[in-house]
Design a protein around this nucleic acid. Structure first.
Lengths: 126, 126
DNA sequence: TCCGACGTTTACGTTAACGTCAACTTGGTC
DNA sequence: GACCAAGTTGACGTTAACGTAAACGTCGGA
């Protein structure tokens, strides 16, 4: 069964970005869609890459950092040195993510406080 | 007891930023330190503001968004309309933070996978 | 007294991540 | 064949968040 493909505006709409954004990602080498004549054709794999890039953006990663993370999945890591260094990279990323988790929890707690204060201020008059 | 103060390089060092960064935040109205002659003098409150701004940055907020969150704490919200609108703002922020939490969890799970693959690749040869 | 560390203002430079034209081509459709 | 929507390639513009350099004040010590 032939795997389906996407054109650029389909993906742009799905992810809530402009086509310019998607072309820009290609310009930067983040994705490499095939061509049908002149038109770009995106595979499900391309689509997932974009999705992961945008996930990275939501938590404050740069595009470069996002691809760095994404590319950890595919195995161009043959020898032990590379594997060791990859493990260190993983641990660094993890450390950052854990701190972000803490930051978010703190901020959520702050929001709870603010909301409580608001509700006390509205006591009796809704 | 007189509350202590900080000078600019003290804070810069504590937070791992340059003095330029701190002056820039002032330029943008994010903080308003007092002056002793020409020199800037920072109170503990100023220090906390900077700390919270940097926390916002770590989870991908813009400077403007950070101050927006920070300023929710102080009460310039008198009437019911303002309180209601503030509550809505709080809920929006919370929604975004919750999605970020999910994103981070997903990414952490991904890192676990990668590390597991690495360790399998190193089986026997440390 | 002069120096060096620290501070100041002013101003131009830089990078990332797109936005915004302008000027084509191309595949249907009326 | 004319037209339109959707695609393409430049190329220049823009915003945020600082970096960097110049040119100057100030104060405590050798």
């Amino acid at each position: 069964m032939a795997t389906r493909t996407y054109n650029i505006s389909e993906l742009a709409e799905e992810f809530g970005v402009t086509t310019r954004t998607i072309r820009f990602y290609e310009e930067k080498g983040l994705i490499q869609p095939r061509r049908e004549g002149q038109k770009r054709l995106y595979t499900p794999a391309d689509r997932v890459r974009i999705k992961l890039i945008l996930r990275g953006k939501r938590i404050g990663m740069s595009l470069q950092e996002s691809v760095e993370v994404i590319d950890m999945y595919d195995p161009e890591h043959n020898n032990r040195d590379q594997l060791h260094s990859l493990i260190r990279t993983v641990q660094d990323k993890r450390a950052r993510l854990l701190r972000q988790q803490q930051d978010i929890e703190d901020m959520l707690a702050g929001l709870d406080e603010v909301q409580a204060l608001c509700e006390r201020g509205l006591e009796g008059n809704p």
